[in-house]
């Protein structure tokens, strides 16, 4: 949920809206915001599962340290979504365990 009105910060406006695709489904996002923030705004909180016990993980530190929020972004696994800015048309997939590295073109 977006924080639009705020008693201290300016009202949120004039943001450039773009679309990212989460597991193929369109999600509205703000250009340049972290992928993790866009997903959180859309109510998506499970970003990946662990390799051994397949437990769900989501955002923990939000500053690129803990790696709990890693997902497959534009085909690249283990991408820290809390420090990866959104671009229009970005493809974001939930990561199951240690996703295989795909050969880069």
């Amino acid at each position: 949920m977006r924080v639009i009105e705020h008693p201290i910060l300016d009202e949120l406006k004039d943001q450039k809206k773009v679309t990212l695709y989460y597991n193929g489904e369109p999600v509205e996002a703000v250009e340049g915001e972290p992928v993790a923030a866009a997903l959180m705004n859309a109510g998506i909180r499970v970003f990946r599962t662990t390799a051994k016990r397949h437990e769900p993980r989501g955002i923990f530190c939000a500053i690129g340290r803990c790696t709990d929020c890693m997902m497959i972004v534009d085909g690249i696994p283990n991408t820290r979504t809390c420090v990866t800015p959104v671009r229009d048309g970005m493809r974001v997939e939930k990561q199951e365990g240690l996703a295989p590295l795909k050969p880069q073109a």
């Binding site: 909180r45 993980r57 955002i59 923990f60």
Partner: peptide, 12 residues
């Protein structure tokens, strides 16, 4: 998911 650092929530 949903357990997070207070600083993380503040950033968000």
């Amino acid at each position: 998911p949903g357990v997070m650092g207070a600083g993380a929530a503040q950033t968000m």
